[in-house]
Design a protein around this nucleic acid. Sequence first.
RNA 1: GCCGGCGUAGCUCAGUUGGCAGAGCAGCGGACUUUUAAUCCGAAGCGCCUGGGUUCGAGUCCCAGCGCCGGCACCA
Length: 493
Amino acid sequence: MTEAGDERRRGAGPPEVLAARRHKLESLRARGVEPFPHGYAGAEPIASVREAHAGLGVGEETIVAHRVAGRITARRGQGAMAFLDLVDRSGRIQLQARIDELGTDGLDLLTGLDLGDLIGVEGFAISSRRGELTLRLTAFTLLAKSLRPPPDKHHGLADTETRLRHREADLLANEETRAVFIMRARMVSAIRSYLDSEGFIEVETPILQPLYGGAMARPFTTHHNALDREFYLRIAPELYLKRLLVGGLERVYEIGRLFRNEGISTKHNPEFTSIEYYEAYADYINVADRFEELMRFVTAAIGYRGPIDFQRPWHRETLTGAIERRTGVDIRRCHDRGRLAGAMRAAGLDVPESDTWPQLVDQLVSKHVEPTLVEPTFLFDYPVETSPLAKRHRSEPGLVERFEAFIAGMEVANAFTELNDPDEQRARFEVQRALADGGDEEAQPYDAAYIEALEYGMPPAGGIGFGIDRMAMILTGRTTIREVVLFPAMRDT
RNA sequence: GCCGGCGUAGCUCAGUUGGCAGAGCAGCGGACUUUUAAUCCGAAGCGCCUGGGUUCGAGUCCCAGCGCCGGCACCA
């Protein structure tokens, strides 16, 4: 059902399922029941109730009292007795409501509540005749009345559009959705604890930036009224983080939202979460080793049980070797656009006319190499043309010390030995400026403040950035970024 | 941005060659003291995404629009 449909119906009077809940709300108030009380202190998580009675035998009853709170998700009436399912953040538990415990009025009130209502309960832990852990209720309190029916209790909520536009409905109906976002949170928490334990400090740099940089992407722009100037929403925190290396912080990381004004796809959301970390006195090989270690740590910490093996050492190839192996094109022998285009045509590959040399290299990687990289893989050593912030390779002319990491056919990380020579950085920016003048919308702008920072002296360093969302996709086994972003970008209805 | 698929009750879904819009769950009324998506009986609830058109007659066929999904392009 679309939003527009809801609105129209509201104008013509609500559907009867909504009206029924409204009427029930009023009759509760008429009975003196407050439908929206202020709190319910002292409830324990359902999971801890389960833990406390793990060894309970079938049909066994205890006099251990528990107090829990949650949402009613199912009801099985038996006249003078009823069973209900209660769900909280930690799990589900069955409730048994008996007329001899609650009285006629109490049982009527409880069984008259709706699926979706939030209640707090007290009761004794017992095992039912079928062996299910159950709370035999001695008391209950309505904690919040639900005025909108929850999705089908068995089929859950399946309509993708409703799931994404009303994530709350998705979360309350689909346990699997809750599991995905809990897993994502634990993943981020594990990343933090790894980096914290390695002496990195978490920092926050500007999201509203006077000049964007650190990646090849088109930015969002916005306007600050008091300063009367345009700001960009950051496309990357890189340049600010490296200024912190200059300042002596030496090991820094930032987890936060990035914004790129580009297309939306199963792998792209206009705002997404990345982490970047930088380490003084490391080079890109050290960074690759640490990233492998980080992923081993994170997957162990969250109990990852998926198809990808993170314990084994990652595959390592050079970029040029990977391209040559898969297409026969040796980009080292094709330093100008014409030669590369010719070699690609000779190999029977598509050559878009407007593509520049770096764009053709990108094509080769994304079309012919990336899809083959299912197991965790590093590609090392990229052309200097595609990497204006990376340090020149120590032995390979024309290349920089940069790698990208791939998992499940998807690029997940980008890293390099950082360029810390201010004069060379200035020259690289000049090249970018020329590209921008030539109409390249993604060329990086000249950042004079950054050059000035490098002039104070930046330690040799390695750094990496990777997409939290894509990592979450891989670790939760989702195929679209929308399944790991709580509220993904959607069109207006 | 381009190409294709989809849009029916609060939710999950049927709907034949164009012929009175349906089921299950939820909700409503009643029965029931051990049930576990789904106990039994009964009565309700759908302007079929929006707007045009063809037709005696449109959920169904045609056109346009909106949204979602899947590709492509762009990108991480």
